[in-house]
């Protein structure tokens, strides 16, 4: 499947700008999103190609405008819902509980 992720040869995407002494993760949520993705992958409900497809199905404008671990998070969420591990409603209500201080 081609799409926004199929970037080889595109022009105009800016300088590379490597970061000196870059840390492995840039925020705590990246650590957790990374580990949850690996741990859920280990259940075997989907494979690596399915994970990639889930990330690549994002709206192209969203894909280009979000960071790498945001792609992972979005893909994970899609897979969790598609495979029945969680529902969108459960996620929404858990977020409200966290915001309300209940969790």
């Amino acid at each position: 499947m081609n799409g926004a992720h199929d970037m080889g040869g595109m022009h105009g995407l800016g300088p590379i700008d490597p970061e000196e002494n870059e840390p492995v993760f840039h925020a705590e949520w990246e650590r957790r999103a990374f580990a949850i993705t690996l741990a859920m992958g280990a259940h075997g409900a989907w494979n690596l190609d399915m994970s990639r497809l889930a990330r690549e199905k994002s709206d192209p404008a969203v894909y280009l405008g979000t960071s790498y671990y945001e792609h992972w998070l979005h893909g994970l969420e899609q897979l969790l819902i598609e495979h029945g591990f969680v529902t969108a409603e459960e996620i929404e209500s858990r977020e409200q509980e966290i915001l309300g201080g209940a969790k």
Partner: peptide, 11 residues
């Protein structure tokens, strides 16, 4: 951050 917390909590 909220979404990640919610997912970890649920899972």
């Amino acid at each position: 951050e909220l979404r990640v917390k919610a997912l970890e909590s649920l899972l």
